[in-house]
Amino acid sequence: MDKYGIEFIEIAEKKEKPQSDKMAFGKHFTDHMFVMEYEKDKGWHSPKIIPNEPILIDPAAMVFHYGQAVFEGLKAYRTEDNRILLFRPEKNFNRLNVSDERMCIPYIDVDLAVHALKELVKVDSEWVPDAPNTSLYIRPFVIATEAALGVHPSHNFKFMIIMSPVGPYYAVKGLEPVQIFVEDEYVRAVRGGIGFTKSSANYAISLKGQQKAIERGFAQVLWLDGIERKYIEEVGTMNVFFKINGELVTPELSGSILPGVTRDSVIALAKSWGMTVTERKISIDELFEAHEKGILEEAFGSGTAAVISPVGKFVMGDKEIIINNGKTGEFSQKVYDTLTGIQYGRIKDEFGWTVEVK
């Protein structure tokens, strides 16, 4: 055991690793996973790194019936000199605790969580791919495991970390703009709800709008606020940014928008470059008007999976706008190149964001 009492049980036979060109997102999983239990009278206990295998859980476990579950997403990157870097992991675990608090899940010690993650990545370091722009996707999550059908917060929980090697998000043509459908029928979240958390329910409620957009030939859906149905919130599972007349504008964190780690990083980068960054309400009408005036220069989503996803077109009803002639903007490309450069160790990290696993 180590200083946090993490027990290590090694897998008997290691699995075959997928080829770099066959690493579909979230389809292949590493040899080991981290597991820690919570009981009301004992707190969090029994941290272990064990073989990645199915878990035994009671059919009455409250996660199945009342949706008490939260998760996070981050990555490990292999550098050209064969180091392994994590990107702002403490930020993800702090945000996990924000989700925990809202979903009545006990606080998890951030130092322990980061340490456990580093130990898990070390154990399965061979799974961190070395092909260009590949990475190891990391999924920490918590589920309610108490077997009870009464509606109340669970007394038992399981905290787990699983990992999956993933290929490059932009595998063929590089950073390519996507077409976005503006959703005006369904809503994703409202202030006072769980829109600011990474709870499983928050994502389940977005599936219908996403399905609708895909059926109509769009890559993502742009969500509007759930009350007035006019203020922009998020793009699919990403935060969204607009470059308007030289200024970077993003929806403010009003309680229904996820405070993205990549979002925070984009804002910090832009400010370090001397750019004006404004977090405020921005309506869909204002966006279309900015396009009509010729001052909507770029738009892009930000998130762990894609880092930056440029937007080439927005469609709402019978109206559509094409941004930057449907091409990736200079600023979007610069942000993508800088963030990925820091993540893969190609660019000096001036912000102290990367954590080496060693």
Rank of each mutant, 00 (worst) to 15 (best):
A171L: 06
G294V: 08
G217L: 05
I108C: 01
Y107A: 00
V315F: 00
W223Q: 07
S199C: 15
E215G: 14
A201Q: 13
A131S: 15
K122H: 04
Y170R: 00
S20D: 15
D21K: 13
E286V: 03
F300L: 10
G260F: 01
E292W: 02
Q333M: 13
K271H: 05
L96I: 03
T134N: 01
I57L: 15
E80F: 05
F181N: 03
A305R: 00
Y186M: 15
E185V: 12
V249F: 03
S332P: 04
V190T: 14
S154Y: 11
P51V: 04
G174P: 15
F241T: 06
H291D: 09
N202F: 01
P251Q: 13
L85S: 09
S302K: 00
M1V: 11
F242Y: 15
V114F: 06
E53I: 03
L117A: 01
L136A: 00
D111M: 02
F288C: 04
I232C: 10
D337A: 07
M36G: 00
T338N: 13
V110P: 02
I257S: 11
I232T: 11
H152M: 11
G5Q: 11
Y66P: 06
E297T: 08
K158M: 15
T278L: 12
P177L: 13
G345V: 13
D109P: 02
K198P: 05
R139N: 12
E215S: 12
P47N: 01
T262E: 07
W223E: 11
I322V: 15
Y77Q: 09
E37F: 11
I55E: 11
V221G: 06
Y4G: 02
H45S: 04
K198C: 14
D2C: 05
G326T: 08
K173M: 08
L85W: 08
F159I: 00
A213I: 14
L253Y: 11
E72G: 06
S309I: 08
S302E: 04
K158Y: 06
G167L: 02
Y344R: 06
Y107P: 02
A268M: 13
T338I: 09
L74N: 01
G326R: 03
K15D: 00
L339P: 05
I161T: 02
D21Q: 10
A290D: 05
W353S: 01
V172I: 14
P310G: 09
G301I: 03
P106M: 10
E37K: 12
A299S: 13
L258Y: 06
M23D: 04
V142R: 02
G226H: 10
G246E: 12
E279R: 09
E320V: 00
I321P: 09
I161M: 00
M238R: 05
E13C: 11
D41H: 07
R83H: 14
L248R: 08
